[in-house]
Nucleic acid binder design. Structure first.
Lengths: 407, 407
DNA sequence: GATTTTTTTCTCGACAGTCGAGAAATTTAC
DNA sequence: GTAAATTTCTCGACTGTCGAGAAAAAAATC
């Protein structure tokens, strides 16, 4: 609102709107675009003609003769309009996916992460090599790569692609913009992994509920704890955020966390923390770098058989999560919480603690327990979130930069 | 972005932009409006002509002959374009202010709150009477009142003017929209008091820092604890929120709060909580309804003389605030914290605890201590926040509803 | 006092965008 | 083969912004 509007801006916005509906509903005919966007038929003609001339969309060749009347011509994104590389950084591997402008996966491979000590700098080189390899395998011109969308666990700068803190590299910041600028002219974006999960779940839920959808939180349980929140803004857009939930203070002077601080939520609810409690190791013990899931499965099995201290470890983790979630809800609003990540396999053991922890707060006592649901397939959701966000960014960039010139 | 744009919308936005710059910089000439808004001179002519015809702005009669050349004609809001009633609800009184469209205070009076038990319903009637009285005193037509802007401590619904929870009425919800609809055609908005403080401080700081301003939190200390946050959005607008900070969980199963829950921040940092700790009353004692400030002053005096338990009461309050703030910052970002309200007189005693409480978190250890500042004149800031928000709302409504018809 | 300079405001034509209505295109039904 | 149905395309009207330059009006200069 601080900045002026112009008629050109109207066209830009409406062009992006057309591309967005094309994304959401697949190939559409002139009439359908008009229906979905509420733009007049004449305007749709003008916009599609421009986008077609700019080689962003194309008319679909074959159309099923659906009824009588002049047959529809479907518009769809030109797949060769540009490409997107999705980089998903996880604790043990980095996955590279090449996606075309229509959202179709073209190539994918993973590279194992070397757990070498001289971390960040070397890791960045690895990513640069990985990206080169994507190009080499697919024989796509580097110019055609419009966006590199990266995700990681940890804390991300909201405006620049800088990984501020991560469970892997700690405070060794990584500025991907800086690292990739010499080689790539593509734009680089970086998002927290659980933010993408929330974005994907939010988009799915909005497709079902429509305007009834208000907000949603995604909680990822694993070696570390992630939280993503998506909320509708007043203008009909979405606002997503990835609070530093895992390292929010749970209890002053509490258990020692991997990050070096005491009392973080993760120091109670991360896998290593559950292990520590179950084995009655003192809470100020420097936590294990990595915990095999099999180890935790054993504790879970014992807990399910009624072993007291094992059950307590999970309950305490649940309490930390519940208290933390209650604080998040106090600061935002009541919203459904989707629980995801490898830790969901212990949800039967965590649940009671989570609910108890939530129930200890004013907010939950007053407005009631938020809906808790378990969602599987975190990896798919992360990728889906990447596509949602990245392709929207590309649509916007391509319209802003490219349409006026035409070809 | 979900909705289409049109050329009419462009005019609306730019008209609002003109009105907003007129608000920020006072009466302006054609040229100055053009400079500030970056709209072309011709567009400014068109827009001001429309606004003038619609009786929203007027040409200022007398202008200082500032230099040579054709003298400037200043545009200013027409003061009789419409009126705003500001209602500030505090624990012991309700203040009514009548303000004209230019932001000038016309009339103001306060009515003492009766502390009667049959609370909410009766209180609403009092407000209705108060509003009638404003009209009667000023002889302004009710039609001309465009907006009633109400503020209170407590939790407010973000989309409707409904007081969800307040220290005064507890969970007795008050729907001001519903209560005032029969009598008033004016729009009704309701905001949390500390949110308005944050909004006012944010506007002030942005006037100084310009684009460097990112975000700010206002913390109000008193019988209850309030928090307001203002942040710049990516589009250049502002997002304000008033988290339920006072009743965010500080410590599970902690001290009993006025709200009936255990462990709220207020149950450690509210005035009654400090009193309770200083007198070593058990933490599950039902807290005093109201604490005379003189009582707290005595404790503070003792604390300053080195009395151990009195000092501890303030330190514990500071810790609760600091821990809570650290959690807020974990969920948002590092930002300056402006401390306001009657509790600032004890800031010397609270400070150490607040800083210690902040320092116990990962976020502060990593990014450093946020700037803490004490701000006096909370009442002035509340009113300023009212004006900022309410007049902006009026500008928008008036342009959307009124300009096309003209007179 | 007339003329020039300077500054501000106003006006005009060009251009961009959206919209409604109706023409053109193209298929199915009879 | 013709009518009906349906979709796409095109045209003129309307609204908006912008740049350039004309008009207005005061101070400076001669």
């Amino acid at each position: 609102m601080l900045t002026k509007s112009s008629t050109e801006l109207v066209r830009q916005r409406n062009s992006v709107l057309v591309l967005a509906t094309l994304r959401r509903h697949g190939p559409l005919a002139h009439t359908e675009i008009s229906d979905h966007t509420r733009l007049s038929s004449a305007t749709v003609s003008a916009i599609t003609a421009d986008l077609e001339k700019a080689e962003i969309i194309e008319k679909s060749e074959q159309q099923a003769a659906s009824g009588r009347g002049r047959p529809r011509v479907l518009f769809r994104q030109r797949r060769d309009c540009g490409y997107l590389i999705v980089v998903i950084i996880s604790s043990d591997a980095v996955q590279y996916s090449l996606v075309d402008y229509s959202g179709k996966l073209i190539d994918r491979f993973s590279e194992e992460r070397s757990h070498d000590p001289d971390g960040a700098a070397r890791f960045v080189n690895g990513v640069r090599e990985g990206l080169s390899r994507v190009l080499a395998r697919s024989r796509i011109s580097q110019e055609k790569v419009l966006l590199i969308s990266i995700s990681s666990k940890g804390l991300v700068n909201s405006s620049e692609p800088v990984l501020v803190w991560s469970p892997i590299f700690g405070s060794d910041q990584i500025d991907f913009e800086l690292a990739l600028k010499p080689d790539w002219k593509a734009k680089v974006i970086l998002d927290n992994e659980t933010l993408l999960v929330a974005a994907a779940l939010g988009a799915r839920e909005e497709n079902v509920k429509g305007a009834d959808f208000r907000s949603l939180a995604a909680l990822s349980l694993g070696h570390s704890i992630g939280l993503g929140i998506i909320r509708r803004t007043s203008h009909g857009g979405h606002e997503v955020s990835a609070p530093n939930f895992g390292h929010m203070l749970h209890m002053a002077n509490g258990g020692l966390c991997r990050c070096g601080t005491r009392g973080c939520i993760e120091a109670y609810a991360g896998f290593y923390a559950i292990l520590r409690t179950a084995f009655e190791v003192p809470l100020d013990t420097i936590p294990a770098k990595f915990v095999p899931v099999a180890e935790l499965d054993k504790i879970a099995a014992r807990a399910r058989q009624g072993h007291r201290i094992s059950g307590f470890a999970f309950r305490q983790a649940g309490l930390a999560l519940g208290n933390g979630l209650s604080r998040v809800l106090s600061l935002t609003e009541r919203m459904p919480i989707a629980i995801t990540g490898p830790g969901t396999r212990y949800y039967d053991l965590l649940r009671q603690g989570i609910e108890e922890g939530l129930g200890q707060s004013h907010m939950v006592r007053m407005e009631g327990m938020p809906e808790l649901r378990v969602v599987a397939d975190e990896q798919i959701l992360v990728f889906e979130g990447h596509l949602n966000r990245a392709l929207a960014v590309i649509d916007e960039d391509i319209v802003v930069a490219g349409v006026q010139g035409g070809d």
